[in-house]
Computed example of a mutant assay.
Amino acid sequence: MITTNDLYKIGRLKFAMVYLMSTSGTTSLTRESLLGTVANRDFIDLVSSQMAFPGSRGKGLPILRVSTPLFTAHIALQGAQLLSFQAKGGKPLLWTSPNCDFSPGVALRGGIPVCLPWFGPHPTNPKLPKHGFARNRDWQLTNAHCSPSGEAELVFDFDSPADELFAYSFSARLTMTLGSSIKLNLSITNTDTHSFDCSWALHSYYPVSSLNEVRVLGLSGKIYLDNLEQHAVKNQYGDVDFHAEVDRVFPDINNDIRISGSPQIQIEHHNCPSVIVWNPGHINAAKIVDIGAGHEQEYICVERGAVLSEKWTLTANETRSAWMKIKAI
C-alpha cells in the first residue's frame, strides 16, 4: 500500500530528477549520488536557487533546503556552500548578497565559501582564480542523517585531479553539523605522490544590523597584516570596527572570536590559526557587481583558516583537519 508519505517522497524524487537533468552545473555522477542521498531523507529537499532565494540572479543552481525542529538552512551543492542558517526562534546567522549570481561556475557571494587550495590571489600566478577553485565546482553529498533531537550531519566530498590550475591531486571533505549552532569540519588529503602547500579559509559572511556599531572582539593587542597596504605589519588597538574599508589578516590567533552587535555571535575553532576580517567599504562595494552600493552596510566577514605563512604543507597521503563552530550568544 502506497501511503501519502510515499507519494510525497516520490514527488520530491521526480522534482529532483527533472531539476538536476536541466541544470548544467551538475555531472551525471553527482546527480546519481545526490538523488540516492536525498530521496529517503525527509529533512532535506532539493530546490532551485530561485525558490530558495526569491528574485535571485543567474541561470540557477540546485540548492539543498534542510529543515529540522532545530533549524532551517540552505546549502549550494556548488562549493558545498552553506548559504543560510537560522535556529528556530533565533536570528539568521549568515548573510547572502541580494545580488548573488547563482550561475554555474560563478563564485557565490555569501554564506560560508570554502576557499581552497589557495586563499586570495594565487601566490605566483595572478591570472588564476582568486580564492582557488573549490568554491566554483560541485561537491558530492555523500551522507546525511538527522538525530531524534533534530541535529543534522551532512557530509560533502570533493576530488580534484592534478590539472592546469593545481599541479597536485587532492581530496577534501566538509562535514556540516547543524542544530542550534553551526559546526564545519574541513579535512584535506594529499592524494598525490609529491608534497604540496595549500592555504584555505572558511570565508564567513555575517549579518549586521548596524555596520557603524558592530565590533569584532578578541583581536585587540594582536598583530595583523594590512591587505590595503601590501601586508604592512600593524598592531590592532581596541576592538575591530568598520568606519572605513577593512581588510586584515591576523596570524596565530588561538582564542575564540566574538561579534558584538545584532546578532551577537561567537566563533570557536580548532587548527584554524588565521583570522581574516573584511568589509569593502561603500566605495568598493559599489564597484563589486554581486554586492552593490549600500549592501556593505549589511554584513562583515570574519573568517578562520590557514593562510599566508600559516599555510599547510601536506606530504603524500597526509590528511589534516580543522573545524569552526558558530553560535549565537
Rank of each mutant, 00 (worst) to 15 (best):
residue 36 G to A: 04
residue 181 S to N: 08
residue 324 M to L: 13
residue 252 D to L: 08
residue 326 I to Q: 01
residue 272 C to P: 02
residue 158 F to S: 00
residue 20 L to N: 05
residue 321 S to I: 01
residue 114 V to P: 11
residue 15 F to S: 09
residue 14 K to V: 15
residue 113 P to D: 00
residue 247 D to F: 00
residue 237 Y to I: 14
residue 154 L to Q: 09
residue 320 R to A: 05
residue 13 L to I: 13
residue 194 H to T: 05
residue 20 L to C: 10
residue 194 H to L: 07
residue 238 G to S: 03
residue 92 P to K: 07
residue 68 T to W: 04
residue 304 R to F: 14
residue 249 V to L: 03
residue 261 G to I: 03
residue 140 Q to S: 11
residue 30 T to C: 15
residue 148 P to Q: 02
residue 240 V to I: 15
residue 163 D to P: 05
residue 307 V to L: 07
residue 72 T to I: 06
residue 126 P to F: 07
residue 83 L to P: 10
residue 114 V to M: 14
residue 176 M to S: 12
residue 82 L to I: 12
residue 106 V to E: 02
residue 99 N to V: 05
residue 95 W to A: 06
residue 325 K to E: 13
residue 285 A to Y: 01
residue 211 L to I: 15
residue 190 N to V: 00
residue 145 H to P: 10
residue 191 T to F: 03
residue 140 Q to F: 00
residue 310 E to M: 04
residue 291 I to D: 10
residue 99 N to W: 04
residue 303 E to C: 11
residue 235 N to C: 07
residue 135 R to Y: 07
residue 133 F to I: 15
residue 195 S to M: 01
residue 312 W to Q: 03
residue 232 A to V: 12
residue 72 T to K: 13
residue 174 L to W: 00
residue 96 T to Q: 09
residue 183 K to Y: 03
residue 289 V to F: 08
residue 74 H to S: 12
residue 300 I to G: 14
residue 228 L to V: 11
residue 265 I to T: 12
residue 149 S to I: 14
residue 325 K to F: 03
residue 287 K to M: 07
residue 243 H to M: 05
residue 218 G to T: 05
residue 86 Q to V: 09
residue 26 T to E: 06
residue 34 L to T: 14
residue 47 V to S: 05
residue 195 S to Y: 02
residue 304 R to C: 05
residue 3 T to F: 13
residue 106 V to T: 02
residue 98 P to K: 05
residue 109 R to C: 05
residue 47 V to N: 01
residue 269 H to K: 15
residue 226 D to I: 05
residue 284 N to V: 13
residue 31 R to A: 13
residue 159 D to C: 14
residue 23 T to R: 14
residue 189 T to W: 07
residue 308 L to Y: 08
residue 243 H to E: 09
residue 89 G to T: 15
residue 119 F to R: 10
residue 316 A to N: 02
residue 47 V to Y: 09
residue 267 I to V: 11
residue 39 A to V: 13
residue 272 C to V: 00
residue 109 R to F: 03
residue 226 D to F: 03
residue 78 Q to R: 11
residue 269 H to Y: 08
residue 91 K to C: 03
residue 140 Q to Y: 02
residue 179 G to N: 06
residue 21 M to K: 11
residue 91 K to F: 12
residue 115 C to F: 02
residue 24 S to N: 15
residue 68 T to L: 09
residue 298 E to K: 13
residue 238 G to D: 07
residue 184 L to M: 03
residue 182 I to E: 01
residue 100 C to V: 11
residue 255 N to Y: 08
residue 63 I to L: 08
residue 221 G to A: 08
residue 225 L to D: 04
residue 265 I to A: 09
residue 222 K to W: 02
residue 66 V to K: 01
residue 294 G to I: 02
residue 73 A to I: 04
residue 259 I to H: 00
residue 25 G to I: 12
residue 176 M to T: 07
residue 205 Y to R: 02
residue 268 E to F: 02
residue 260 S to Q: 07
residue 215 R to E: 14
